[in-house]
Design a protein around this nucleic acid. Structure first.
Lengths: 223, 223
DNA sequence: TAGATTGTTAATCGATTAACAATC
DNA sequence: TAGATTGTTAATCGATTAACAATC
């Protein structure tokens, strides 16, 4: 695989491309041009071609892109064919929602086990996923190939559990704790799902719009 | 409030600043320089000063920033003092996790009600939040001031429910459905929490690292 | 006062957009 | 073949970084 240094912006757009291509395929569309794809995603055709060109040549002059081929290429680029494995730490409401409702398989992941400290949960199964004792985590990681820990523990436990995971040599943490984990002294990959950051951004956008409307009507009043 | 056009990158950094400042305040830190803040967040002092200067002058030469003051300013900029109201649509596992475990109040929001179509849920309460009949949503929105709909319905219902919400004049949707909603023909603000996009990005970063390591050891083998 | 650190202007860097030869 | 559309090079735009006068 071609691995030039690809900018973060490009990487973050790849899953959107994948989603759109799935959508197109589901609607029976078999080919698409960068122009049309740009229209549907709100991007310029140039940007789309630049993005793809980071990874190879997936199109054909005069034709465009084959939807199924392009989808497969992007899935490969994202690594969703590599069979990464995950465990989930912290089986609260959110952990349970992820176990029962989130399709890890759609992203190419296998969730193999969940861990908690609650004796009422340990030993049970949610769906296919066994809830194991947190104390057995280290052993489990040593005996099984696990790439990602999904971190859904309460805020107060976030930092210490993350540190433990890093010491146990986990490669990546998918962090739902709303706590900043990025440690300069480790090379664990951290991917954050900060709900509150997202909601605060949304708050900003609403506030901004209200202020704009207010200043408009304010001006109108003066006229 | 000063409302110059502020870039998306800046807006997305604001919640991180807020989080860090809370953290500092909790640890008894009362003042901080852009240099020190940059160290702790992995940003340059220049960038931090540029970011803040979009909104005003919050520091003092030779001193730095007062942590509590700066925090308050950023909270105001984000609109978390405006008392925005939210309802939640779709009380599955994820909806329930948000109702019971996510602190809307910390972001300045009030969650006032949740809606579902499941008769077993309608009429019940989760925490303080009543579960109402989806059929009563329109009436509820008409009679109450609601700014944001938290969308946690199943994938298949996402688009139609979102369209309904837009027709009912909701200002913003916090979208957890993993479905692309941005409609060009509406001016509803959409803030996405695409779990699968995040996990796929994480997948990319792991795959990238593995490939780098493989190519390094490949080179080493040849020597 | 001297040292520190801001807010802002200028310089650099990187990402997006435009243009176009190549070619299906 | 003619028209369409790619992949890529060049131009533009915007965001980040550096520098520095202002000043606490």
């Amino acid at each position: 695989m071609k691995r030039l240094k690809v900018s973060n912006n490009v990487i973050r757009r790849l899953p959107r491309y994948l989603r759109k291509l799935d959508d197109l395929a589901a609607n029976g569309v078999t080919r698409i041009s960068s122009f049309e794809l740009g229209q549907q995603l709100g991007l310029t055709p140039s940007q789309i071609r630049q993005d793809f060109s980071c990874f190879g040549e997936f199109g054909q002059q005069g034709y465009g892109y084959n939807v199924a081929d392009l989808r497969a290429h992007i899935a490969t680029i994202l690594g969703s064919d590599r069979g990464f494995n995950a465990v989930l730490i912290g089986v609260g409401n959110l952990g349970r929602a992820l176990i029962e409702n989130f399709s890890f398989a759609d992203c190419g992941f296998t969730l193999s086990a969940a861990f908690d400290i609650n004796p009422d949960l340990i030993g049970r199964n949610f769906g296919e996923i066994p809830i194991l004792n947190m104390e057995d985590l280290e052993k489990y990681l040593a005996e099984n190939s696990v790439d990602v820990a999904v971190l859904t523990v309460p805020k107060h436990a976030a930092v210490s559990v993350a540190e433990n995971l890093e010491q146990m040599g986990i490669e990546a943490i998918w962090n739902f704790t709303n706590v900043e984990l990025a440690e300069p002294n480790t090379n664990t990959i951290i991917e954050n799902m900060h709900f509150s950051d997202s909601l605060l951004s949304l708050s900003y956008f609403i506030a901004e719009r209200r202020d704009e409307q207010a200043s408009k009507s304010g001006k109108a009043d003066k006229e």
